[in-house]
Design a protein around this nucleic acid. Structure first.
Length: 478
RNA sequence: GGCGCGUUGGUGAAGCGGCUUAACACACCGCCCUCUCAAGGCGGCAUUCACGGGUUCGAAUCCCGUACGCGUCACCA
């Protein structure tokens, strides 16, 4: 049977990392089957929570991540519409609710808020609504509806036990007496999530339901609905949450980063996806770096963990650095040039600058801060020349820098290779260590205790004129 | 409170009864390399798997209990 999975977010205007991971897993499960189908469905039945532009964030995110869907509101498909509010209009939920009532899986309920409230207060924590409407005859119901009474449709829970198999949690059995008779169709005619989800998943032929484990305890109720309709029950894959710390989930409320926030902070979508794949799932081999296609190969539902995983920004950073470092220099330069330009206005070779930061930057955002010394030659104290390991200090600098100046003054070829050749002759000639020459030179032309790249690389980027200008200033202040 | 699920280091985790004196990765700490900083290389970092019992010749791995955590019990999704 062809695998069909779905990602069914509600448009809240915020792409939660945990949600994105669920989407990833659903995508991987589908792609694992060469004919598998990945579906995007928008669940917008909560009219009160609609947010302007929120669906665009969903489209943008899954596109940026490469989680291409085969069916969805924007690409069509044979099982549409793919937006839940449009499905409501077509009346399918009401239709199925009535069919479910006929099959004994649900009943009309005319109780008002006060009745529920009264019972809720009387029973306290152990509250479970005992709905008198269950006993109403079909004729009585029809009569009241004809009279215009407001009603909802509630699920009817039979006696007995319900058990189901989950791919990650195994077999779970519950006593039906613990299940409550939830509302399926609201009085405004809209389905609740619980109902719409089951109907839509069935109608769309979903074979594998991938979702967060907060639905684990309502799954028996869903199965009762499937059974009442005599429908096939899908494979369940419940994923543990992505945590902020050991007590709380990552959430908007906690001010935690969304996918977009992470991109804005300079993380690559590929790295983010790679990282979240590893949160709660472990590959069989010892490996950390995976492209999306490689994840499809490596993924195995059986290796999803049962425990919530804490999101570790440090490891994401490292992983992002790995992704950045393995890019070829041309694409890296293209990616990074806007960030270089934030700090560097001068006419310096962006390619060469990109080359010196590629091995050092873990996020795009930290790049401008690394490059401030190109446009501005900061004033500095002469004790910056002191370095214990290099055995250098202002005295050494005073001896070395004029020598450097002379060499550079006569140098026409300012390529890195050429500078390397001529500058490395100096330590030999002066009977010094390389560091004793190059360290003071680097300080002299950057004015900083540490910089990305060494003296040669930086001099080559600064160019002859600027290098000599800085060198003169440095020498004059010694 | 009922029901369900879980608990291996600071973090992600491997482990599925003997090969484990518990992989690997991030972080951290050393050393090496090195013109600084990175990157890279090497090494260190849980005598112990929430706790208490039991089963077994043998348990992180199986069973029971306790503790703690999470989820759920809406006309939210």
């Amino acid at each position: 049977m062809t695998v069909r999975t779905r990602f069914a977010p509600s448009p809240t205007g915020y792409m939660h990392i945990g949600n994105l991971r669920t989407a990833l897993y659903a995508y991987l499960v589908a792609r694992k089957d060469p004919d598998g189908v990945f579906i995007l469905r928008i669940e917008d039945t909560d009219q009160g929570r609609l947010v302007e532009g929120a669906t665009d964030i969903i489209y943008d995110t899954i596109r940026a991540c490469g989680l291409k869907h085969d069916e969805g509101p924007d690409v069509g498909g044979d099982y549409g519409p793919y937006v839940q509010s449009e499905r409501v209009t077509s009346g399918i939920y009401r239709d199925y609710a009535e069919r479910l009532i006929k099959r004994g899986g649900a009943h009309y309920c005319f109780c008002d808020e006060e009745m529920l409230q009264a019972q809720r207060e009387a029973e306290g924590d152990s509250f479970k609504y005992d709905d008198p409407c269950k006993l109403l005859s079909p004729e009585e119901c029809a009569k009241r509806i004809a009279e215009g009474a407001k009603y909802v449709v509630r699920q009817t829970i039979p006696e007995g036990q319900t058990s189901f198999d989950d791919e990650v949690f195994g077999t779970i059995t519950v006593d039906n007496s613990t299940l409550d008779e939830q509302v399926l169709l609201k009085s405004d005619g809209f389905p609740t999530y619980n109902f719409a989800n089951v109907i839509d998943d069935h109608l769309m032929g979903i074979t594998d339901v991938v979702r967060g484990m907060e639905y684990l305890s309502s799954t028996p109720k869903y199965n009762l609905i499937y059974n009442a309709f005599d429908w096939d029950i899908p494979r369940y894959i419940h994923c543990p949450p992505v945590m902020k710390d050991e007590h709380s989930k990552l959430s908007k409320r906690n001010g935690d980063a969304s996918f977009q926030d992470l991109v804005d902070k300079g993380y690559l979508p590929e790295a983010i996806l790679n990282y979240i794949a590893l949160l709660g799932w472990a590959p069989e081999e010892d490996r950390e770096i995976y492209t999306l296609d490689e994840l499809v190969q490596a993924f195995n539902v059986k290796r999803i963990g049962k425990v919530g995983a804490i999101f570790d920004p440090e490891k994401l950073k490292w992983l992002n650095g790995m992704w950045l470092r393995q890019m070829d220099l041309d694409s890296y330069t293209e990616l990074v040039t806007p960030y270089i330009n934030k700090a560097v206005k001068g006419d310096f070779d962006r390619h060469k600058i990109a080359a010196i930061i590629q091995q050092r930057a873990n996020t795009l955002q930290e790049i401008p801060g690394m490059l401030t010394f190109f446009d501005e030659f900061p004033s500095f104290e002469n004790d910056l020349y002191f370095n214990k390991k290099m055995k250098t200090n202002a005295e050494v600098a005073k001896e070395i820098l004029p020598e450097c100046r002379t060499v550079l003054q006569n140098q026409e070829d300012w390529s890195q290779e050429a500078l390397h050749t001529v500058l490395l002759e100096l330590p030999k000639k002066l009977e010094k260590k390389n560091g004793q020459v190059l360290f003071p030179l680097r300080v002299a032309i950057t004015g900083l205790p540490s910089t990305p790249g060494g003296a040669i690389e930086i001099a080559s980027i600064l160019g002859k004129e600027e290098t000599l200008r800085r060198l003169d200033i440095a020498i004059s202040q010694l």
